[in-house]
Design a protein around this nucleic acid. Structure first.
Length: 424
RNA sequence: AGAGAGGUGGCCGAGUGGUUGAAGGCGCACGCCUGGAAAGUGUGUAUCCGCCUAAAGUGGAUCGGGGGUUCGAAUCCCUUCCUCUCUGCCA
């Protein structure tokens, strides 16, 4: 969430950024926050004064008791009782203000960076880069959901039987392809200087709150009542939460982590004809990169992450484009996001396979992720993350783009991982 | 899952109701000592919310989390989470 100090000191900049994000009533809500904060502080001062007096009396009583002046002590106790009643009520009021303030701050998204293009929807995203020729397929080329049946490599019916819709079973060379992609992505990330981690795929509520999935997006996660845990929608959640309540020293920066996990998304209400096959699943695999940076370096790092992801797509020989998301399409917690889309030739569609974002201090404020600089001051760090990459749509594009009438060939880089060059 | 023990500062570790935000040690920073270093020695060394602000200073909170008893709680009670040991179970 945003910091109150941020709202106070750079109010107009924040409002501009929020309006770009199509956040309504930005000024009104910020004023409300500032009012509430003012009231909160005044209450805090009153409470502190009462507590200070109360502490003084208690100390005095202690001394009197030791001297054996019990009667005076008893008199003092009466004062103390009054102070206590007063402090109790003030403490309750203060807590109410604090909760109200937090709730209000939860409703405010991150502000858009000044480079974010203006716009309302996905149609307004700025296409900033495109690479690779769009493949021309032979007549009668199949979409991936037909190819997987034809070669019997992914089975939706079986997944449907044992679990439900959106939980495919990968079989034979399909399973091997999945495993190969995971290993390829991890190896590439490690080569690029990332530190590999394998986090849990169930997280507690605190973690969900810290990275911003809770409370806003509760409905998108699977929840397990035993232990009150959530299945992660992305490895971003556990990997970023590794740094919850952490104070780093400057020489530990930057942090660059990579991890593979399955991801689980309920995707309530988003099912229909346009999400056939691998386009949208309840469970899918993803390799995620997470970086933590000094505020001054985070945008340079974002560009670096974008290059890391582009390199993967180029090695996979997939045509892709890079979009800079417009304000209206930007995620809740993000200040600037690049989406990478691959071209899926049989569907004749661009499919989002990665989203690379800078969250600035929006997450670190909830995480309490800070560093102590040379000036000994605590400063919030910037968190960034990106998919590198999400598997199902990559698979869809690989299958569709590389098909011929009786086989599917795979890019060179994958062959050592696959142990074969083609299917069929 | 059952029984027991325990959760104190960056770390170790004292502390069972009254200037204890917390002894002592280690570590770390700076200074002294030294030709230089080690040893020795001195000083400092948490976070959050406030007040005042140029700085200094200062009030409050925090001994896993939450609640309670009390004039006063790290210390007593309740509750919850976590860790360890034994038993059980299992990959």
């Amino acid at each position: 969430m945003l910091q109150v100090s941020q709202l106070k000191e750079t109010k107009h900049k924040v409002i501009t950024g929020l309006l770009k994000k199509r956040f309504k009533n930005a000024e009104e809500i910020i004023d409300k926050v500032l009012d509430l904060d003012q009231t909160r502080r005044e209450t805090q001062v009153k409470l502190d004064n009462v507590l200070a007096e109360s502490n003084a009396v208690a100390r005095e009583i202690g001394q009197l008791m030791q001297k054996g002046e019990k009667e005076t002590a008893t008199q003092r106790k009466e004062i103390s009782a009054t102070l206590k009643a007063s402090s109790k009520s003030l403490a309750e009021t203060l807590q109410q203000y604090e909760e109200e303030l937090t709730q209000l701050l939860y409703t405010i998204p991150n502000t858009a960076h000044s480079d974010v293009p203006d716009g309302v929807s996905a149609d307004d995203n700025e296409n900033i880069f495109q690479h690779g020729e769009l493949p021309v397929l032979y007549d009668g080329a199949l979409p991936h959901w037909e190819l997987i049946k034809k070669y019997d490599i992914i089975d939706f019916d079986l997944g449907n039987k044992i679990t439900g819709a959106g939980f495919p079973v990968y079989k034979g060379k399909g399973a091997r392809l999945q495993r190969s992609l995971i290993n390829f992505f991890l190896d590439e990330a490690v080569k690029a200087g990332y530190h590999e981690v394998q986090p849990p795929i169930l997280v507690n509520q605190e973690s969900g709150i810290a990275t911003g999935q809770l409370p806003d997006k509760e409905g998108q996660m699977y929840h397990i009542p035993e232990g009150n845990l959530y299945l992660i929608p992305t490895a971003e959640v556990p990997i970023t939460n590794l740094y919850r309540d952490v104070i780093l020293s400057e020489d530990q920066l930057p942090i660059k982590n990579v991890g593979y996990t399955p991801c689980f998304r309920r995707e309530a209400g988003s099912w229909g004809a346009h999400v056939r096959g691998l386009n949208r699943l309840h469970q899918f695999d993803k390799v995620e990169i997470v970086q933590i940076h000094h505020p001054e370096n985070s945008y340079q790092a974002l560009e670096g992450m974008l290059e890391d992801v582009k390199r993967l797509l180029e090695k996979l020989e997939l045509p892709y484009r890079v979009l800079k998301l417009c304000g209206g399409d930007l995620g809740f917690a993000s200040a600037l996001t690049y989406d990478l889309e691959v071209y899926s030739a049989a569907q004749e569609k661009w499919l989002e396979v990665s989203s690379v974002s800078n969250f600035e201090t929006y997450q670190s404020n909830r995480l309490k992720l800070r560093f102590k600089g040379d000036d000994k001051k605590m400063t919030l760090l910037h968190t960034l993350n990106g998919s590198a990459l999400a598997l199902p749509r990559i698979m869809a594009a690989l299958l569709e783009n590389n098909q011929s009438k009786d086989s599917i060939r795979f890019p060179k880089v994958l062959v050592p991982y696959l142990g074969f060059e083609s299917i069929g």
